[in-house]
Write a protein that binds this DNA or RNA. Structure first.
Lengths: 354, 354
DNA sequence: CTTTTTTGCACAATCGATGGTGCAAATAAT
DNA sequence: ATTATTTGCACCATCGATTGTGCAAAAAAG
């Protein structure tokens, strides 16, 4: 029928048109009509009217009534890096496959903003919340708990709700080992003071990665000292400064670099922009995060791809449970060798014309 | 006060607690109380009660009543590439600064999914919609129009709503010119059959870019033939195949490559993974999209950074207008030379501990 | 000490959908 | 033909917030 002037049709409009009551219309349109013993012919009539008038339910009204909204939220620290944006992509696909509506929001790794954002989501009667990389997962838990909203931590664990995170310790060991191995047939063997870790802050992920780094480094190279760890926060700018400072001091970069995340890796890019190719002639970089372009830089870049699909799948599984245990589920990440272009969530979406 | 057992406080709860009517409570808490001549002391009482009981308005109820929700939507084709994810990031910042709540969803460049997603958003009484990179902006317009929702196209233009897009023609000229210039002091000059365009499909952006590419190429190199244009859709897999096919046929890659988007660039990465460094020894790549890691690949990569901030700013400006003209606003993109690490939206978020 | 004006707030309808309850008509059982 | 069931649906309260309207009490004007 015509695209209507302005206002959307409601069950009351259809009620008038069909001669049935609004409750009948409602039942027909939300599928509960068999349970309510509505005649099949009545249902058909109403359905065809609904179609003609392009009826779609007002989800705010429905949500108000059932205090559910059909929305499932993903709280992200930031959008614009490959780790989180590909998480968003898989999240959307999984939520849709459950027949719900995904909502992705970021809170800039700011505890205040995290809480404010979650409050807003709760006010919209969001049904479930996936909390990824929150600085303060337990406070967020507090809000969800009070509102009776199922929630789960991803990427960074909390102590009050179940968490699904990648096995940072193991991943860091893998990555560090791979970096070291790269020097196996170098003319000069890698010395402990030549292998540094840059980036991260005092969060669970960083701590675990640092532990893994130090453990395997000590195992393989015999020694590790505190000054080989340079936490810079999750900021490209600070990371760049750290590299500049190091370079100023030492006249060169460490031969082996463990970079805590792709965001920190961008700090290295900024440093690179200021220095000639030779500066990077024989370095090996390991980055705890995968970025397809990062994998093809002019020096060997070994990366860790966190398995966001498995993490989210596990998270969905747990969030469905009635009383999930408050424990941390570790998902194994994957080591990605230099010059590797992995497939991603985009590969599963069809592209029409070529 | 205590975090409450389960249910959130409503104006009715506060109404009882304060001895005032619900309408008074409502007025106090939504700021209209002066207009309603509520005594200041009453307002203070209610506000303090609200704080004690951690009252937050049920936004679904409010939205139902005003048929507005405070939500502003951004419809994206996909999340996981730097162009769209950084668009999401700036979008969120801008929406928040307007006191609204951002909602970002992707629709996989699938016209069906686009419409379904927008219908859902409309059912939540979203206030405004930014339609980015939609395959079928005009159908989306239809839905918004019928629902009386302000909307605007970004990145890909429609014919029925105002659009803000980057100047693809001009950008493509810039980029192509920069590619050609790179060969100025090469031993062998670049011949027209050595400069190819890969990627894109039959959308407005691709068409404009192809036009810009061909125009300047003809101007500078004297000739351009149809087979130098290889549209592959927006899919890494298809793009890879196109490169493989070309390589199979010609035994090498073109010396000059114009790649239509970072998504297509990922197709080149996949190709690269299959071939040794030498294959890329003297190629020059121009990519219509900026990715910081892409900028540092082992061969010269010239990129175009689309100015998402300006695009969104302009879009916000237009969407506020009562009757914005249905026209296309062009935003100039920026040429980014190889080995450049630009700042992005992440730089404006503070990082607490270093 | 009236009359007018202002102040301060309560009432009740409304937004659209849902679901428990009740009840008449149709059908089946006796 | 009478009672018991089943069928098919209407009625109405409800979710929480908003807002136009109305009306006492208090203050000001006379």
């Amino acid at each position: 029928m015509k695209p209507q002037g302005k206002k959307k049709a409601t069950i009351y409009d259809l009620s008038v048109l069909s001669g049935c009551s609004a409750s009948t219309v409602s039942a027909v349109l939300n599928g509960t009509w068999r349970k309510r013993r509505i005649k099949e012919s009545t249902a058909e009539l109403i359905q065809s009217l609904a179609e003609q008038h392009q009826y779609t339910a007002n989800l705010q009204a429905r949500g108000l009534r059932n205090s559910r909204s059909g929305l499932v939220g993903l709280l992200l620290p930031v959008h614009d890096n490959r780790y989180f944006s590909s998480m968003a992509q898989t999240f959307e696909a999984q939520v849709r496959s459950h027949g719900k509506c995904p909502v992705v929001v970021s809170a800039s790794r700011d505890p205040q903003e995290e809480l404010a954002t979650v409050e807003t989501l709760i006010s919209y009667s969001i049904d479930e919340l996936f909390i990824a990389g929150a600085t303060d997962p337990d406070s967020v838990h507090g809000l969800c708990e009070a509102a009776g909203i199922r929630h789960i931590n991803i990427d960074l664990p909390g102590t009050k709700a179940p968490s699904v995170i990648s096995d940072n310790y193991q991943g860091a060991r893998l990555l560090t080992q791979a970096i070291i191995k790269r020097f196996d047939d170098a003319e000069a063997p890698l010395r402990p003071q030549e292998l540094f870790l840059f980036g991260g802050r005092n969060d669970h992920a960083s701590r675990e990665r640092i532990k893994g780094f130090r453990d395997i480094k000590t195992e393989l190279l015999g020694h590790d000292s505190d000054d080989c760890i340079q936490p810079t926060g999750y900021s490209p700018g600070m990371t760049q400064k750290a590299f500049e400072a190091f370079y100023e001091r030492e006249g060169k970069l460490p031969r082996g670099l463990f970079i805590n995340s792709s965001i920190n890796f961008e700090g290295l890019l900024r440093f690179m922009a200021q220095h000639p190719h030779e500066t990077f002639a024989d370095i090996v970089v390991g980055c705890y995060d995968y970025d397809p372009f990062g994998s093809f830089l002019p020096f060997p870049v070994i990366m860790i791809r966190q398995d966001t699909e498995s993490m989210l799948a596990k998270a969905f599984e747990l969030i469905e449970e009635t009383r999930p245990a408050v424990k941390i589920h570790l998902i194994q990440p994957e080591l990605v060798h230099p010059r590797t272009a992995l497939k991603g969530p985009l590969d599963s979406i069809r592209d029409i014309d070529a």
